[in-house]
Lab assay of single mutants.
Amino acid sequence: EWCEALHSFTAETSDDLSFKRGDRIQILERLDSDWCRGRLQDREGIFPAVFVRPCP
C-alpha cells in the first residue's frame, strides 16, 4: 500500500520517518488510527497518518 505526503514531517525521535510534501511512502503497517509505519527509499519509521493520503 502506498501513500503520498500532504505535508512535510520532520522526525522528532530516531523511530520517526522524515519526509517531504509529495513523497510517495510505502505503508508497512497501520499501528493505530493516528500512526503508520512506512518505508521511504532505504529508511523505515513511523509517521502521523494525517500527514498522508492514499495513492490512487
Rank of each mutant, 00 (worst) to 15 (best):
R43K: 11
V50D: 12
R39F: 04
R39N: 02
D23N: 05
C36Q: 02
I46E: 06
I27G: 01
L40A: 09
Q41T: 05
P54T: 10
R43W: 04
L17T: 05
A5L: 01
E12G: 13
G38W: 01
D23V: 02
F51E: 05
L31F: 10
C3G: 09
S18V: 04
Q41K: 09
G22V: 00
E29W: 04
R53E: 09
L28T: 12
F19M: 04
F47N: 09
L17P: 01
A49R: 10
G38T: 00
H7S: 12
L31R: 07
D23P: 02
E44S: 06
W35D: 04
R37F: 07
E1Y: 07
P48Y: 06
T13S: 14
I25W: 00
C36A: 10
E4K: 08
W35F: 15
K20Y: 04
F19S: 01
A11C: 05
P56G: 13
L31Y: 09
G38C: 03
E4G: 00
A5F: 04
L31C: 09
R39Q: 08
R37K: 10
D15A: 14
P56S: 09
F51N: 15
F51P: 00
Q26L: 12
W35E: 05
F51W: 08
D42F: 03
P48M: 05
F47E: 01
C36I: 15
F51D: 03
C55H: 09
R53T: 14
P56L: 15
T13C: 11
C3S: 04
C36E: 00
G38A: 07
C36R: 04
I27D: 03
C3N: 09
L28Y: 06
K20W: 02
K20Q: 14
S14G: 11
H7T: 14
D34N: 14
R53S: 08
R24D: 00
D23C: 00
R37V: 10
R37L: 10
T13Y: 08
G45A: 04
T10A: 12
E29N: 05
R24G: 01
L40I: 15
V52R: 01
L31S: 07
R39I: 09
E12R: 15
L40E: 00
S33L: 06
D32Q: 09
G38E: 02
R30Y: 14
G38K: 01
A5D: 04
F19L: 03
L17N: 02
F51V: 09
V50Y: 13
G45S: 00
R37D: 01
I25T: 01
D32T: 10
T13P: 01
T13V: 07
Q26M: 14
S14N: 14
S33Y: 12
D32P: 10
L31V: 11
A49C: 12
R43T: 08
L28F: 13
R37P: 02
P54A: 10
I46G: 07
Q41C: 11
I25E: 01
S8M: 04
R24Y: 11
D15I: 10
C3E: 00
F19E: 01
F51S: 13
F47H: 01
L31T: 06
R30C: 10
S14D: 13
D32L: 00
L40T: 09
R53V: 09
K20C: 09
E12D: 09
L28M: 10
S8E: 12
I27R: 03
D16F: 15
D34K: 10
S14A: 14
P48G: 01
A5C: 05
I46L: 12
C36K: 06
C36W: 15
R53I: 06
P54V: 08
C3D: 03
R37M: 08
C55S: 11
S8T: 14
E12Y: 09
E4D: 06
V50W: 09
W35V: 12
W35M: 12
P48Q: 07
P56V: 04
I25R: 00
S33K: 13
S14M: 13
D42G: 15
G22Y: 02
V50N: 09
E12H: 13
E12Q: 15
V52N: 05
L28W: 01
L17M: 08
G38I: 00
R39V: 07
R43S: 08
A11W: 02
G45R: 02
L31A: 03
Q26C: 07
R39P: 00
Q26V: 05
T13Q: 11
E12I: 14
D16V: 13
A11K: 04
V50A: 15
C3T: 05
V50L: 09
S8L: 02
F9D: 05
C36H: 08
R43A: 11
